[in-house]
């Protein structure tokens, strides 16, 4: 009896080391893509004197999108994850970094991450509502929907609220094409966002 239990324990321990998913050892490798600003600024503008201090909160995203996995949709009502393609960072967090870099390079604001001991003049709050590869047709499109709110911290008032929607066609029907189109969509969203902020000044 004791010997049988010992054999069973050894078998279970060794079983944990077995990869059932890849018996042949030829499974595709996971590719990690970096999300970039597709229309990055050619040159940086120095921050002008007396520019308001803009606090930029991290971009939030829904539970399904707040992951490093790339999302696709074969129909409007369904979503799925690419199995062998991932982002190097969660899209919401990465988008906030690209947004701060873009605003910082324009020189219209003194940009800082919200929190800590910085007392700001304005607060920018953004939410990534949709960010997926629409694969209902080949090669499909990359869809990005962003909602932004600008708040005056001095007066505690909402200065503006805007939703941006961008759809960029893919060049190829795979994760690499989706990642390239996502860069372009992010660039377009940041263009629209900065223009909207300028209209509120």
């Amino acid at each position: 009896m004791r010997r049988a239990l010992f054999v069973l324990a050894v078998a279970l321990s060794l079983g944990g080391c077995v990869n059932f998913a890849d018996p042949s050892g030829k499974s595709p490798e996971v590719v990690n893509y970096v999300l970039n600003d597709g229309t990055a600024l050619a040159s940086r503008t120095p921050v002008r004197a007396g520019a308001p201090l803009l606090l930029v909160l991290d971009t939030t995203a829904g539970g399904f999108y707040d992951t490093d996995q790339m999302v696709f949709a074969r129909s409007p009502a369904t979503r799925g994850y690419y199995q062998f393609a991932r982002w190097t960072d969660r899209p919401g967090k990465r988008f906030a970094e690209l947004m701060r870099a873009r605003l910082d390079g324009q020189g219209a604001y003194r940009v800082a991450a919200a929190g800590g001991y910085v007392l700001g003049d304005l607060l920018l709050d953004t939410e990534l509502i949709d960010f997926y590869h629409d694969a209902s047709s080949e090669p499909g499109t990359m869809r990005l929907v962003l909602r932004a709110e600008l708040i005056d911290l001095r007066q505690r008032t909402l200065l503006g609220r805007q939703t941006f929607e961008h759809t960029v066609p893919l060049a190829r029907f795979d994760a690499a094409g989706a990642a390239a189109a996502a860069d372009v969509a992010v660039g377009q969203a940041l263009d629209a966002l900065t223009a909207w902020l300028a209209s509120l000044r």
Binding site: S24, K26, S27, P28, M70, F72, G80, Y81, Y82, Q83, F84, A85, H133, A135, E138, P139, G140, R172, F173, D174, A175, A176, G177, A178
Partner: peptide, 10 residues
């Protein structure tokens, strides 16, 4: 059925 666009199993 879970594979994404352009993904294939060996």
């Amino acid at each position: 059925q879970q594979l994404g666009p352009g993904e294939k199993l060996p």
